[in-house]
């Protein structure tokens, strides 16, 4: 299959030029964005995600290398033409006075309207389409100041869509939203990428959402190379673990998430299946207890009449817990007792 490359970055070094030598943030980056794919840019803070985003969107020139949009150097495209190819959504909260959500989305037609800004029938159709796609029909006639943060970002995404770009670039747009709102925006972006063949690059801190929602991931470790690939590939080849290693947290391939505790004091074996086992394991690991098949202490999950119980089997006795919380409490008090008897 031949992929349509929309954006290509070649040997790009980002940073800021200054009189006393250039301040390089990241160097020698290579990557591409293909038509209709949703790509998430992930990386620890300070890796240079924002600088890279600004460089790709044409706001900032690279120190070295080139960014190509449909084969043309993006920094040589006049702003008016670029606005028809590439649209932005930013982290910042927008205060648009008394503009209604509809009028804000309508500003997406800015590059297409004449000097007077008059909207044609076609413009209105595109604006409605964008509002509909964003599921923001109910918000259209409200003023922006009446909307919640999540609704506002939804409108800004609709506005970026109404700009009819090839590429949409979104910089940390979910940063101040709660989880349901973040999921909603992600779902919306997936829909835009799949149904309308928009190419979308989203920088985010939300690893979990990126792993689940992105077609591909650009992983930018601090001072390192840009790793690109399907989220699953990057997990399996250890790129994730490496990228976040220096941050003092551990990425776990098994669960696809970060580990809070990284050192284990004791081990138990776990006998059980399904979601009960999965969540028991998480609770154990959070409390510094490793799950290991060979361990002497065995925890068994039993089910009877829809109720679950956790049975702790030790050499000489058994303890029964009716919830994970109770299980953890029992294990912890057990640990302390052992501690006393040992001393």
């Amino acid at each position: 299959m031949i992929l349509d490359t929309v954006i290509k970055i070649e040997q790009v070094s980002t940073g800021y030029p200054s009189r006393s030598g250039n301040q390089t943030v990241t160097s020698d980056l290579n990557a591409s964005l293909n038509k209709g794919e949703l790509v998430c840019l992930l990386g620890p803070n300070g890796a240079g995600k924002s600088t890279l985003m600004r460089t790709i969107s044409g706001e900032q020139k690279p120190l070295e290398g080139k960014v190509y949009l449909e084969g043309k150097d993006i920094h040589a495209i006049p702003p008016k033409d670029l606005a028809k190819k590439l649209s932005l959504v930013l982290t910042e909260r927008v205060h648009a006075g008394m503009l209604s959500a509809y009028e804000v989305v309508a500003l997406g037609r800015f590059p297409y309207t004449s000097w007077s800004g008059r909207l044609q029938q076609e413009d209105h159709r595109i604006i409605r389409e964008a509002i509909y796609l964003a599921g923001a029909e109910e918000l259209a006639h409200k003023t922006l100041s009446e909307l919640s943060d999540g609704e506002r970002q939804k409108i800004m995404v609709a506005r970026a869509f109404a700009q009819e770009p090839e590429v949409m670039i979104l910089d940390e747009v979910t940063a101040f939203l709660d989880l349901p709102r973040r999921v909603e925006i992600m779902r919306l972006l997936r829909k835009m990428a799949q149904d309308s063949a928009k190419t979308i690059l989203l920088s985010t801190h939300d690893m979990d959402l990126a792993l689940r929602g992105a077609d591909r991931i650009w992983l930018l470790p601090k001072g390192g190379q840009l790793h690109t690939g399907a989220p699953e590939d990057l997990v399996l080849d250890g790129s994730f673990e490496q990228a976040f290693e220096s941050e003092g947290i551990r990425f776990d391939q098994q669960s696809g998430s970060f580990k809070i505790s990284s050192t284990f004091e004791t081990s138990v074996s776990l006998d059980g299946s399904g979601s009960q086992a999965l969540w028991t394991r998480r609770a154990l690991e959070r409390n510094g207890i490793n799950v290991d098949e060979g361990a002497e202490k065995r925890i068994e999950i039993r089910e009877s009449q829809g109720h679950h119980s956790w049975i702790i089997n030790e050499k000489d006795h058994q303890l029964v817990a009716s919830s994970i919380h109770e299980l953890i409490t029992l294990l912890n008090s057990n640990k302390e007792q052992n501690h006393y008897s040992n001393t």
Partner: peptide
């Protein structure tokens, strides 16, 4: 009108 969204957005609209 584009300025109402802030300078960054205004710039992204080709202004």
């Amino acid at each position: 009108n584009a300025f109402l969204l802030g300078e960054n957005y205004a710039r992204s609209l080709g202004l």
